[in-house]
Write a protein that binds this DNA or RNA. Structure first.
Lengths: 217, 217
DNA sequence: CTTGACGTAGAACGTCTGTTCAGCTATCAT
DNA sequence: ATGATAGCTGAACAGACGTTCTACGTCAAG
């Protein structure tokens, strides 16, 4: 038998927590004390009340006291953490990478909802759809979605970050890992079978940092 | 003044709907009839009941009758549409693609939360992390996450679907677009610069359908 | 052994809650 | 005018609900 510790949950409390989660998922509504009682075969409402107080002290549930169904779960990670990313255009090799202004953001008719856990703080995000196979050395194909974070200060891009870069001398945009080497920029394709190459830092304009690449199939 | 039509919502009902939405967001709990009454300055609970019945007929709310706070909103688009996908293992060329059983699903310590809009109905999903660059002709690199849907019936995989296939004769797993051509299977790399090839259908085992590929950077 | 902490059982209480009903007013087509 | 429909009021009821209290049992520490 495993000893229940002060900080651990007794079996019944764990089951209560599970029951509440399941009930909420099923009904989109927290259970009442008596529903918990019946659902777990507990003999008395006072028992439920008792353990509920313990769960409350352990900060595992919040309660609205004296209110029916006044049970609120401490957000279990996945709750409410979606972020809306506007798909503001397409990325084409022969054009600079679009960087949206407030106008373009507001009028974006296409929005991608993704989990915040994929994109960090979620500030200044926008998405582009890739056209053609010109980004193939970044392992990105026609139709893929690239989620970018707007770069306001070039220092935001650290060595090894994958970024959208526009090459002034070639009149071409590309997605590469960026490394600063003195006056030069080393641009390394995401494809490990391809060779890095170098450009004059003055001839390259970093436009956005790639946070995430998504391919729907 | 705009005439309220039979199919349109009278002002009070619209306000009730708004109130319920706001209340739920604020408290993570539906309101009681009397809370709606007080919140909107309605004189009687029977009025709330009355309008609630109308909203119910209009399919704008669902109700658990005779249950306190038994109000459930018809999901307003973005709500609740996250799906948890367990990352159950890694995909390596030289091994069959893992297909998780209930056990593996329960013990998955790593879970990916993604928007349901990326993965359709969200049934039987699991995710694998790619190891090495053996999937590079599917434009997938080391560290990428592949979201798969378990294939129970081979017919679920339609021509042109991207799928995880294990090639018995080569003892190798791979991600390719699959086309049935008589006794043969045409396997087309996701990379448009590479050539498709053919295998005997009996020598290929389709293990999962690729729903989505995600690269975090 | 005593004590205290913890878990349990059962019941009671006062309030909250959804529902219903009888009756009121206003509008509008018949 | 008549009747129908919709909106509204106020009150009441029965059951659901959260809370609290007394009493009991167990177990380990002092």
């Amino acid at each position: 038998m495993s000893e229940p510790r002060a900080s651990a949950l007794s079996e019944i409390r764990q089951r209560m927590l599970d029951f509440i989660v399941r009930y909420k998922e099923e009904h989109d509504l927290p259970p009442t004390i008596r529903e918990i009682q019946r659902g777990l075969g507990i003999s008395s409402t006072s028992m439920v009340s008792y353990h509920l107080k313990a769960l409350e002290r352990a900060q595992l549930v919040n309660r609205y006291h004296r209110r029916s169904r006044g049970l609120v779960l401490q957000q279990p990670a996945h709750a409410r953490d979606m972020v809306s990313v506007p798909i503001v255009g397409q990325i084409v090799a022969s054009e600079p990478v679009p960087t949206p202004d407030a106008d373009a953001l507001a009028s974006a008719d296409n929005v991608l909802h993704i989990a915040r856990s994929l994109v960090g703080n979620g500030r200044n995000l926008y998405a582009l759809e890739v056209r053609g196979d010109s980004m193939i050395d970044a392992l990105i194909n026609d139709g893929d979605i690239v989620v970018l974070q707007r770069v306001e200060n070039p220092a935001e891009v650290k060595n090894g970050d994958l970024a959208a870069v526009f090459l002034l001398d070639r009149n071409e945009s590309t997605l590469k890992r960026v490394y600063r080497e003195g006056q030069r920029l080393k641009l390394k394709p995401e494809n490990p079978r391809m060779r890095p190459f170098y450009v004059d830092a003055a001839q390259a304009s970093i436009q956005g940092k790639v946070m995430c690449v998504i391919r729907r199939t």
